[in-house]
């Protein structure tokens, strides 16, 4: 195993009776990466996470987290890996500080050490003002940040987050993504699962697409886009001109597909940034170019397109 591999699984499988939750999963996450697990609900993301933490035993296959076997060495794994569950709960009657003290004690920290770590963790997520407030008064976004402080206490090498931005308002979600970026800057590897694609796209270095217990796609967003959409760029051309304009655009080298969502609007899927070539094609065909825009493919497109194709095949 390479030294910089944080999570490695081979043929990881989990059955619940006859239901196959995770099917033959091969996953590799490297040190310092932010890796996103995507997929619809029930695709096996949470089950995978529970197996990584040793909270559920795999039916078959092997998994190594930080070089340890979570089923046999759960204490070592859990003292190095932070977990932010999908439904994150705290003791509402206790203050933020008291909640974190319990975590610190469960991690075997001495009181003075715990005190220092708690205050610095709360400062890191911007909750230093509410240290002595009961958690029952916290907003959803504050709880989520407290959850990060809670895992930071054990100084983790890896943090696993299950649907961390679900139910957050846009501003809280943006703040939270900022926290994830800072964790990455601190050298902590992050694995997160989500179905909120634009947020995943905003922070993840690589993503894996889950579908029915299998990881069907894996790579950077650009790689996935090239593979699924056939082109990594999408160019919007607004032009007035003869009917042959669409044909002219289609003939440009590197154009994969042309659609016409409006009377004067053309959408080009291309392999490269072909704006100059597209402009030239419009002018040469005798058209009037009104505007030219390029947009990077979004994960939403990849996702939608992938499941459209799956629907056709299956």
């Amino acid at each position: 195993m390479a030294a910089d591999v944080v999570i490695e699984s081979h043929g990881l499988t989990k059955h619940y009776n006859s239901f196959v939750a995770v099917d033959n999963l091969n996953l590799t996450v490297r040190h310092g990466e932010v890796f996103g697990l995507l997929g619809p609900n029930g695709a096996g993301k949470t089950t995978t996470i529970l197996m990584l933490l040793g909270l559920t035993e795999p039916t078959a296959g092997s998994v190594r987290v930080l070089g340890l076997d979570p089923a046999r060495q759960p204490l070592s794994v859990k003292s190095r890996v932070g977990y932010l569950p999908e439904l994150l709960g705290f003791y509402n009657g206790l203050t933020a500080y008291e909640n974190l003290i319990y975590t610190a004690k469960l991690n075997g920290l001495r009181r003075d050490e715990a005190h220092e770590r708690i205050l610095s963790a709360l400062a890191q997520v911007g909750l230093e003002e509410v240290v002595e407030k009961p958690v029952g008064t916290f907003s959803r976004g504050m709880r989520q940040r407290l959850g990060v402080a809670d895992v930071l206490i054990k100084k983790p090498q890896l943090i696993i987050m299950d649907e961390p931005t679900q139910g957050l308002d846009p501003e809280a979600a943006r703040d939270f993504l900022g926290i994830i970026r800072r964790l990455k800057a601190d050298g902590i590897t992050v694995l997160l699962s989500s179905h909120l694609l634009h947020q995943v796209q905003a922070v993840c270095d690589r993503v894996g697409l889950f579908y029915r217990g299998r990881m069907v796609l894996e790579g950077t967003v650009e790689e996935l886009a090239r593979r699924v959409l056939g082109g990594a760029y999408r160019i919007q051309v607004e032009a007035e001109g003869p009917a042959s304009l669409e044909e002219a655009l289609r003939r440009v080298r590197g154009v994969v597909n042309v659609t016409r969502p409006g009377e004067t609007l053309y959408e080009l899927e291309t392999e490269y940034d072909l704006r100059p070539e597209a402009a030239r094609a419009v002018v040469e065909a005798g058209g009037k170019l009104l505007s030219l825009k390029v947009e990077q493919p979004s994960l939403d497109d990849v996702y939608t397109r992938y499941f459209e194709q799956e629907g056709k095949h299956g």
Partner: peptide
């Protein structure tokens, strides 16, 4: 019910 179980068992205890 308080959703603290997952967080609790993710700590290094049995």
């Amino acid at each position: 019910n308080q959703h603290t179980m997952a967080r609790l068992l993710a700590q290094p205890i049995y």
